[in-house]
Protein backbone atom coordinates (compact mmCIF):
# COMPACT_ATOMS: atom_id res chain seq x y z
CA UNK A 1 0.00 0.00 0.00
CA UNK A 2 2.64 2.46 1.05
CA UNK A 3 4.49 2.27 -2.26
CA UNK A 4 1.31 2.79 -4.22
CA UNK A 5 0.51 5.86 -2.20
CA UNK A 6 3.89 7.47 -1.99
CA UNK A 7 4.38 7.82 -5.72
CA UNK A 8 1.43 10.15 -6.49
CA UNK A 9 1.98 12.24 -3.39
CA UNK A 10 5.61 12.69 -4.23
CA UNK A 11 4.90 13.64 -7.84
CA UNK A 12 2.16 16.12 -7.21
CA UNK A 13 3.98 17.80 -4.33
CA UNK A 14 1.33 20.18 -3.19
CA UNK A 15 -2.31 20.74 -2.45
CA UNK A 16 -3.30 18.23 -5.14
CA UNK A 17 -1.63 15.49 -3.14
CA UNK A 18 -4.52 14.99 -0.80
CA UNK A 19 -7.32 14.32 -3.25
CA UNK A 20 -5.20 11.94 -5.27
CA UNK A 21 -4.10 10.27 -2.09
CA UNK A 22 -7.68 9.60 -1.06
CA UNK A 23 -8.81 8.22 -4.40
CA UNK A 24 -5.85 5.92 -4.61
CA UNK A 25 -6.57 4.57 -1.19
CA UNK A 26 -10.29 4.01 -1.32
CA UNK A 27 -10.64 2.13 -4.57
CA UNK A 28 -8.80 -1.03 -3.49
CA UNK A 29 -10.12 -0.94 0.07
CA UNK A 30 -12.77 -3.64 -0.43
CA UNK A 31 -10.31 -5.97 -2.07
CA UNK A 32 -7.81 -5.17 0.65
CA UNK A 33 -10.32 -5.96 3.41
CA UNK A 34 -10.53 -9.52 2.20
CA UNK A 35 -6.77 -9.85 2.47
CA UNK A 36 -6.73 -8.40 5.98
CA UNK A 37 -9.29 -10.38 7.98
CA UNK A 38 -7.97 -9.36 11.41
CA UNK A 39 -8.81 -5.70 10.76
CA UNK A 40 -12.35 -6.62 9.75
CA UNK A 41 -12.94 -9.14 12.56
CA UNK A 42 -11.60 -6.68 15.16
CA UNK A 43 -13.70 -3.84 13.78
CA UNK A 44 -16.84 -5.98 13.72
CA UNK A 45 -16.24 -7.11 17.32
CA UNK A 46 -15.71 -3.57 18.60
CA UNK A 47 -18.60 -1.97 16.73
CA UNK A 48 -20.86 -4.94 17.43
CA UNK A 49 -20.28 -4.41 21.14
CA UNK A 50 -20.85 -0.65 20.86
CA UNK A 51 -24.05 -1.37 18.91
CA UNK A 52 -25.36 -3.61 21.70
CA UNK A 53 -24.42 -0.97 24.27
CA UNK A 54 -26.28 1.62 22.19
CA UNK A 55 -29.40 -0.53 22.10
CA UNK A 56 -29.03 -1.01 25.85
CA UNK A 57 -29.00 2.76 26.35
CA UNK A 58 -32.25 3.03 24.44
CA UNK A 59 -34.24 0.20 26.00
CA UNK A 60 -32.89 -0.19 29.54
CA UNK A 61 -33.25 2.09 32.53
CA UNK A 62 -29.64 2.79 33.46
CA UNK A 63 -30.44 4.88 36.54
CA UNK A 64 -29.95 1.87 38.81
CA UNK A 65 -26.17 1.89 38.42
CA UNK A 66 -25.91 3.63 41.80
CA UNK A 67 -25.39 1.57 44.95
CA UNK A 68 -28.46 0.82 47.09
CA UNK A 69 -30.88 1.19 44.18
CA UNK A 70 -31.70 -2.52 43.93
CA UNK A 71 -31.91 -5.52 46.27
CA UNK A 72 -28.45 -6.99 46.86
CA UNK A 73 -26.85 -10.22 45.62
CA UNK A 74 -29.57 -11.30 43.20
CA UNK A 75 -28.44 -13.94 40.73
CA UNK A 76 -29.20 -13.13 37.10
CA UNK A 77 -32.72 -14.19 36.11
CA UNK A 78 -35.43 -12.54 34.10
CA UNK A 79 -37.82 -12.11 36.99
CA UNK A 80 -37.45 -11.86 40.76
CA UNK A 81 -40.23 -11.72 43.24
CA UNK A 82 -39.07 -9.13 45.71
CA UNK A 83 -39.90 -9.01 49.41
CA UNK A 84 -42.75 -6.60 48.90
CA UNK A 85 -44.34 -8.93 46.36
CA UNK A 86 -43.48 -6.93 43.23
CA UNK A 87 -41.74 -8.53 40.29
CA UNK A 88 -38.53 -7.00 38.96
CA UNK A 89 -36.12 -8.17 36.29
CA UNK A 90 -32.35 -8.18 36.68
CA UNK A 91 -31.04 -10.13 33.68
CA UNK A 92 -27.41 -9.54 34.79
CA UNK A 93 -28.12 -9.79 38.54
CA UNK A 94 -27.17 -7.30 41.22
CA UNK A 95 -24.07 -6.90 43.40
CA UNK A 96 -23.57 -6.81 47.17
CA UNK A 97 -24.13 -3.04 47.25
CA UNK A 98 -27.36 -3.08 45.27
CA UNK A 99 -26.37 -2.03 41.78
CA UNK A 100 -28.10 -3.29 38.65
CA UNK A 101 -25.24 -5.00 36.83
CA UNK A 102 -26.85 -4.66 33.40
CA UNK A 103 -26.95 -0.90 33.87
CA UNK A 104 -23.28 -1.03 34.93
CA UNK A 105 -22.37 -2.97 31.80
CA UNK A 106 -24.26 -0.54 29.55
CA UNK A 107 -22.74 2.56 31.16
CA UNK A 108 -19.29 1.23 31.98
CA UNK A 109 -18.16 -0.06 28.58
CA UNK A 110 -18.44 3.24 26.65
CA UNK A 111 -17.08 5.15 29.66
CA UNK A 112 -13.91 3.04 29.71
CA UNK A 113 -13.54 3.32 25.93
CA UNK A 114 -13.93 7.08 26.28
CA UNK A 115 -11.05 7.26 28.77
CA UNK A 116 -8.94 5.23 26.36
CA UNK A 117 -9.83 7.40 23.38
CA UNK A 118 -9.14 10.69 25.18
CA UNK A 119 -5.81 9.40 26.46
CA UNK A 120 -4.87 7.91 23.09
CA UNK A 121 -5.59 11.12 21.18
CA UNK A 122 -3.68 13.24 23.72
CA UNK A 123 -0.70 10.86 23.70
CA UNK A 124 -0.50 10.51 19.93
CA UNK A 125 -0.90 14.25 19.32
CA UNK A 126 1.87 15.11 21.78
CA UNK A 127 4.00 12.21 20.56
CA UNK A 128 3.65 13.19 16.90
CA UNK A 129 4.46 16.85 17.55
CA UNK A 130 7.50 15.89 19.65
CA UNK A 131 8.63 13.34 17.07
CA UNK A 132 8.44 15.81 14.19
CA UNK A 133 10.20 18.51 16.15
CA UNK A 134 12.97 16.10 17.13
CA UNK A 135 13.41 14.45 13.77
CA UNK A 136 12.99 17.52 11.62
CA UNK A 137 14.95 20.14 13.51
CA UNK A 138 17.57 17.72 14.91
CA UNK A 139 20.41 19.24 16.94
CA UNK A 140 19.65 20.59 20.39
CA UNK A 141 15.86 20.16 20.03
CA UNK A 142 16.35 16.48 19.21
CA UNK A 143 18.78 16.02 22.10
CA UNK A 144 16.38 17.59 24.59
CA UNK A 145 13.38 15.59 23.42
CA UNK A 146 15.42 12.41 23.36
CA UNK A 147 16.52 12.83 26.99
CA UNK A 148 12.94 13.55 28.08
CA UNK A 149 11.80 10.43 26.22
CA UNK A 150 14.58 8.29 27.71
CA UNK A 151 13.77 9.43 31.23
CA UNK A 152 10.06 9.02 30.54
CA UNK A 153 10.58 5.45 29.37
CA UNK A 154 12.36 4.65 32.64
CA UNK A 155 9.36 5.88 34.63
CA UNK A 156 6.29 3.75 33.97
CA UNK A 157 3.21 5.92 33.34
CA UNK A 158 1.23 4.01 35.95
CA UNK A 159 3.70 5.05 38.67
CA UNK A 160 3.68 8.73 37.71
CA UNK A 161 -0.11 8.60 37.71
CA UNK A 162 -0.10 7.02 41.17
CA UNK A 163 2.23 9.75 42.48
CA UNK A 164 0.20 12.55 40.88
CA UNK A 165 -3.11 11.11 41.99
CA UNK A 166 -1.92 10.61 45.58
CA UNK A 167 -0.68 14.17 45.76
CA UNK A 168 -3.72 15.75 44.18
CA UNK A 169 -5.62 14.07 46.98
CA UNK A 170 -9.03 14.16 45.29
CA UNK A 171 -10.82 11.90 42.86
CA UNK A 172 -10.31 12.61 39.17
CA UNK A 173 -13.29 12.63 36.82
CA UNK A 174 -13.12 10.09 33.98
CA UNK A 175 -12.17 12.76 31.44
CA UNK A 176 -9.42 14.10 33.69
CA UNK A 177 -8.18 10.55 34.14
CA UNK A 178 -8.02 10.16 30.35
CA UNK A 179 -6.08 13.41 29.94
CA UNK A 180 -3.70 12.48 32.77
CA UNK A 181 -2.99 9.09 31.21
CA UNK A 182 -2.44 10.75 27.83
CA UNK A 183 0.00 13.27 29.32
CA UNK A 184 2.10 10.50 30.83
CA UNK A 185 2.12 8.06 27.91
CA UNK A 186 3.22 10.11 24.90
CA UNK A 187 6.92 9.19 25.14
CA UNK A 188 6.66 5.76 23.55
CA UNK A 189 4.73 6.94 20.44
CA UNK A 190 7.14 9.89 20.26
CA UNK A 191 10.09 7.53 20.06
CA UNK A 192 8.62 5.20 17.43
CA UNK A 193 7.16 7.97 15.26
CA UNK A 194 10.48 9.86 15.45
CA UNK A 195 12.34 6.90 13.98
CA UNK A 196 9.75 6.69 11.19
CA UNK A 197 10.21 10.39 10.41
CA UNK A 198 13.99 10.00 10.44
CA UNK A 199 13.73 7.33 7.75
CA UNK A 200 11.22 9.36 5.79
CA UNK A 201 13.19 12.60 5.68
CA UNK A 202 15.97 10.86 3.75
CA UNK A 203 13.57 9.71 1.05
CA UNK A 204 13.86 11.11 -2.45
CA UNK A 205 10.48 12.85 -2.59
CA UNK A 206 11.14 14.78 0.64
CA UNK A 207 14.60 15.67 -0.64
CA UNK A 208 13.06 16.90 -3.92
CA UNK A 209 10.42 18.91 -2.12
CA UNK A 210 13.11 20.58 -0.03
CA UNK A 211 15.17 21.40 -3.13
CA UNK A 212 12.14 22.95 -4.81
CA UNK A 213 11.87 25.39 -1.92
CA UNK A 214 8.99 24.04 0.14
CA UNK A 215 9.15 25.36 3.69
CA UNK A 216 9.77 23.08 6.68
CA UNK A 217 6.12 23.23 7.72
CA UNK A 218 5.04 22.59 4.14
CA UNK A 219 7.14 19.44 3.95
CA UNK A 220 5.85 18.21 7.29
CA UNK A 221 2.17 18.80 6.52
CA UNK A 222 2.04 18.08 2.80
CA UNK A 223 4.64 15.38 2.32
CA UNK A 224 5.41 13.56 5.55
CA UNK A 225 2.20 13.62 7.57
CA UNK A 226 -0.07 12.15 4.85
CA UNK A 227 2.34 9.27 4.38
CA UNK A 228 2.59 8.66 8.11
CA UNK A 229 -1.18 8.49 8.63
CA UNK A 230 -1.34 4.67 8.45
CA UNK A 231 1.47 4.38 10.98
CA UNK A 232 0.00 7.04 13.28
CA UNK A 233 -3.39 5.34 13.15
CA UNK A 234 -1.81 2.03 14.14
CA UNK A 235 0.02 3.77 17.01
CA UNK A 236 -3.23 5.42 18.07
CA UNK A 237 -4.97 2.07 18.42
CA UNK A 238 -2.01 0.77 20.40
CA UNK A 239 -2.09 3.85 22.64
CA UNK A 240 -5.83 3.53 23.22
CA UNK A 241 -5.36 -0.09 24.30
CA UNK A 242 -2.46 0.87 26.56
CA UNK A 243 -4.47 3.73 28.08
CA UNK A 244 -7.45 1.48 28.78
CA UNK A 245 -5.08 -0.98 30.45
CA UNK A 246 -3.57 1.83 32.54
CA UNK A 247 -6.98 3.25 33.49
CA UNK A 248 -8.29 -0.15 34.58
CA UNK A 249 -5.08 -0.73 36.49
CA UNK A 250 -5.33 2.61 38.24
CA UNK A 251 -8.97 2.02 39.08
CA UNK A 252 -8.44 -1.55 40.22
CA UNK A 253 -5.92 -0.41 42.85
CA UNK A 254 -8.48 2.06 44.13
CA UNK A 255 -7.36 5.34 42.55
CA UNK A 256 -10.31 5.77 40.21
CA UNK A 257 -13.48 7.75 40.71
CA UNK A 258 -15.52 5.74 43.19
CA UNK A 259 -18.86 7.02 41.88
CA UNK A 260 -18.26 6.17 38.21
CA UNK A 261 -19.45 2.77 36.95
CA UNK A 262 -16.46 2.12 34.64
CA UNK A 263 -15.22 -1.40 33.92
CA UNK A 264 -12.13 -0.79 36.05
CA UNK A 265 -14.17 0.37 39.04
CA UNK A 266 -16.38 -2.72 38.71
CA UNK A 267 -13.22 -4.84 38.85
CA UNK A 268 -12.15 -2.83 41.91
CA UNK A 269 -15.42 -3.55 43.75
CA UNK A 270 -15.10 -7.19 42.77
CA UNK A 271 -11.64 -7.44 44.33
CA UNK A 272 -12.70 -5.37 47.32
CA UNK A 273 -15.70 -7.57 48.13
CA UNK A 274 -13.97 -10.80 46.93
CA UNK A 275 -16.83 -11.74 44.64
CA UNK A 276 -14.99 -14.83 43.44
CA UNK A 277 -14.98 -16.44 46.85
CA UNK A 278 -18.61 -15.37 47.35
CA UNK A 279 -19.43 -17.38 44.22
CA UNK A 280 -20.97 -14.33 42.54
CA UNK A 281 -19.75 -15.15 39.05
CA UNK A 282 -22.34 -12.83 37.50
CA UNK A 283 -20.63 -9.87 39.14
CA UNK A 284 -17.16 -10.27 37.66
CA UNK A 285 -18.01 -12.01 34.40
CA UNK A 286 -19.62 -9.11 32.42
CA UNK A 287 -16.86 -6.51 33.04
CA UNK A 288 -14.24 -9.17 32.44
CA UNK A 289 -15.88 -10.26 29.19
CA UNK A 290 -16.24 -6.64 28.07
CA UNK A 291 -12.57 -5.93 28.81
CA UNK A 292 -11.48 -9.08 27.02
CA UNK A 293 -13.59 -8.20 23.95
CA UNK A 294 -12.21 -4.64 23.93
CA UNK A 295 -8.60 -5.83 24.15
CA UNK A 296 -8.94 -8.62 21.60
CA UNK A 297 -10.70 -6.36 19.11
CA UNK A 298 -8.14 -3.56 19.60
CA UNK A 299 -5.35 -6.12 19.27
CA UNK A 300 -6.83 -7.45 16.01
CA UNK A 301 -7.42 -3.93 14.67
CA UNK A 302 -3.88 -2.87 15.54
CA UNK A 303 -2.27 -5.91 13.97
CA UNK A 304 -4.46 -5.34 10.92
CA UNK A 305 -3.36 -1.70 10.78
CA UNK A 306 0.25 -2.73 11.30
CA UNK A 307 0.01 -4.84 8.23
CA UNK A 308 -1.50 -1.92 6.36
CA UNK A 309 1.13 0.57 7.46
CA UNK A 310 4.15 -1.72 7.30
CA UNK A 311 4.17 -3.82 4.14
CA UNK A 312 7.23 -5.70 5.38
CA UNK A 313 4.92 -7.56 7.75
CA UNK A 314 2.77 -8.81 4.86
CA UNK A 315 2.04 -12.46 5.21
CA UNK A 316 4.86 -14.23 3.53
CA UNK A 317 4.40 -17.33 5.66
Amino acid sequence: MTEQVQAPVGESMGAGGWSQFNEERFIPIKKYALRNPSLIVGGVMLFGMLFLVGIGHLVWDTEQFRPLSTPTRLAPTLSHELRDGTIAAYPFGTDTQGRDLLAIAILGTPLTLRIGLIAGVVAITLGTVAAFMAAYYRGVVDGAIRSVVDVGLAMPALLILILVRINIGRELSTDELGIAIGLTSWVFPARTIRSQVLVMREQAYVELSRLSGTSGMGIIFKEMLPNLIPYITASLVGSVAGAILASIGLEAIGLGNLSDPTLGMTIYWNIQFSSITLGMWWWWLPPLAAIVIVFISLFLISSGLDEWSNPRLRKRV
Binding site: I291, V292, F295, L298
Partner: peptide
Protein backbone atom coordinates in the same frame (compact mmCIF):
# COMPACT_ATOMS: atom_id res chain seq x y z
CA UNK B 1 -1.95 -12.28 25.02
CA UNK B 2 -4.56 -9.56 24.47
CA UNK B 3 -6.11 -10.33 27.86
CA UNK B 4 -4.56 -8.49 30.82
CA UNK B 5 -2.68 -10.84 33.13
CA UNK B 6 -4.73 -10.11 36.23
CA UNK B 7 -8.03 -10.84 34.46
CA UNK B 8 -6.65 -14.18 33.35
CA UNK B 9 -5.64 -14.59 36.99
CA UNK B 10 -9.22 -14.00 38.11
CA UNK B 11 -10.52 -16.64 35.69
Amino acid sequence: SAIPQYLLGMI
